[in-house]
Structures are given as structure tokens and as C-alpha cells.
């Protein structure tokens, strides 16, 4: 009986996931737009250095696709928050659903979005290199880092996906908290700003916990555990909301 229930939950969640993948597919246009706009910004360079000694001047323009990845992170954050809003919940109405299957299908959709966003945001770096190759004077391009090792590309994709999973967990939890009480709309930014100002060390340690991790397996473990915790708390909050309603 128990296993039958679990299978039902899983199959319902998968059906909802497929349904939501179709229903929320317009969300991906936001990502495409963000990536294309930031690609154009990135073509202007992210930093500029110039120096002169009177007889000659040297200038170095630095380029990177990091901005594209950062904007993709913003996109997944807002997408995760949006999934918890009433407007998106309405899409579930035609389906036979409960809170858990609804959450699982949402998480499934977010994971798909993370994989898509992680792959495309890293590959825009390849597009940026190709545009630079054909439009810039190649005798000015420094080969170091321009020639991207395939292993580095795969590493970049994996890390971008993991960061997006982490950020989507944060966004989903934030959305759920604001569903529990609208007061969290003010409390969450206040807490973040407060901790960053009053307990800057703790706040920085929290960020460094992820950003300074130089071992990929450890980083993946940290992200997966933190994300499971955040999504788990989100599901619990969602169930609590169901009882209170």
C-alpha cells in the first residue's frame, strides 16, 4: 500500500513536471534575452587598463562572459520566486495535484532550467570568443585563456549548473516564505542587509563557504546538501500553508 502511494506521487509529479515544462516554457525567453543583452555588454569589455611613460602607451581591455553567467543567476532567482506566486499556481488548476507533487514538479522544472541556464550561459563564452575572433584585430588578442580547454568548458558548465541549483533553492525558499507571510517581503531583505552590515564576517564566511571552495566534489556536496535543505524547508512551509488555509 505504501509503495503504491509512492509510485503514484512520483508518476503524478512526473506528469505535472512535463505539463509545467510546457506551460512555463515562456520563462526561458527571459533567459535568452538576458544572455543576449549581456553578451552585447560583454563585447565592450569588462575592465580597461592603460598606462603610459611618455614615449609609449599601453592599454589592455579585458573580456569575460562572467556577466552573462551572473545575469543567468538573476534569471533563475526570479524564475524560482515566480513559481511560488499565485499567477503560476493557477496553471496547476487543471491538474489533480497536492502540495508535495506540485513542489516536486516545480523543483523538477527548476532543475531543468538550471541545466539549460548553466549550459547556455557557459556556451555564450564560446560565442563571445568567436565574435571577438572575427571582429577584433587578432594580433591584439592574447592567446592565454582565449583558447578554452574543453575540460575547462565542461567544468564551467558543471559549476554554473550547481550555482544555479543553489540560487534556485534560495529563490524558491524566499518565494515560499513570502507566501507564508507577506511580512517576509520586508524581513528577508532587512535580515540580509542587517547581517551583511552588523555581522559582515559571518556574511562573508557564508559566501566564502561556496565561492572559495576549490575542490569540485566538495563544492558539489555543499551545494547539493544546502539545496536539499532549502527545498525541503520550502516543501514543509508549503504544507504548513495548506493546513492553515
Amino acid at each position: 500500500m505504501m509503495s503504491l502511494k509512492e509510485v503514484d506521487l512520483l508518476s503524478i509529479s512526473i506528469k505535472q513536471y512535463v505539463y509545467k515544462l510546457k506551460a512555463y516554457s515562456t520563462l526561458f525567453y527571459g533567459l535568452l534575452l538576458a544572455q543576449i543583452i549581456t553578451l552585447f555588454f560583454s563585447l565592450n569589455g569588462i575592465s580597461h587598463m592603460s598606462s603610459s611613460n611618455g614615449e609609449l602607451s599601453v592599454s589592455v581591455n579585458s573580456y569575460s562572459a562572467s556577466l552573462v553567467i551572473v545575469f543567468s543567476f538573476f534569471w533563475i532567482l526570479f524564475a524560482a520566486i515566480q513559481l511560488t506566486t499565485k499567477q503560476y499556481k493557477k496553471i496547476e488548476n487543471p491538474l489533480v495535484t497536492n502540495r508535495i507533487s506540485g513542489n516536486l514538479s516545480n523543483i523538477g522544472f527548476l532543475m531543468t532550467a538550471c541545466v539549460f541556464g548553466g549550459i547556455t550561459s557557459s556556451l555564450v563564452g564560446v560565442l563571445l570568443r568567436i565574435i571577438m575572433y572575427f571582429t577584433f584585430d587578432r594580433s591584439q588578442i592574447i592567446s592565454d585563456e582565449f583558447i578554452l580547454a574543453f575540460s575547462d568548458l565542461l567544468l564551467g558548465i558543471s559549476v554554473a549548473i550547481l550555482y544555479m541549483v543553489l540560487i534556485s533553492g534560495m529563490g524558491y525558499l524566499t518565494g515560499m516564505l513570502t507566501k507564508v507571510s507577506m511580512a517576509f517581503v520586508i524581513i528577508i531583505p532587512a535580515v540580509i542587509i542587517g547581517i551583511s552590515k552588523a555581522y559582515a564576517d559571518i556574511f562573508q564566511s557564508l559566501i566564502k563557504f561556496f565561492t572559495l571552495e576549490s575542490s569540485l566534489p566538495l563544492f558539489a556536496l555543499k551545494v547539493i546538501i544546502t539545496s536539499i535543505l532549502m527545498f525541503g524547508v520550502s516543501i514543509l512551509l508549503s504544507n504548513r500553508g495548506e493546513v492553515s488555509q
Binding site: S57, I69, L155
Partner: peptide, 26 residues
């Protein structure tokens, strides 16, 4: 007076974090 312009590509911070580089900007 000579002017030299260079274009440096920095790897994404997602790669730099695991590439033994303290900063993605050289």
C-alpha cells in the same frame, strides 16, 4: 609615440574558482 592595445580574455569565475587562480582577472 607608440600605442599598443591588447585584448585579454579572462576565464569565467565559475572556472577560475577551481583553476588555482585567485582572480578571474589577470
Amino acid at each position: 609615440r607608440q600605442t599598443f592595445e591588447f585584448k585579454q580574455f579572462n576565464i569565467d569565475f565559475t572556472m577560475a574558482q577551481f583553476d588555482n587562480q585567485n582572480s578571474s582577472i589577470h
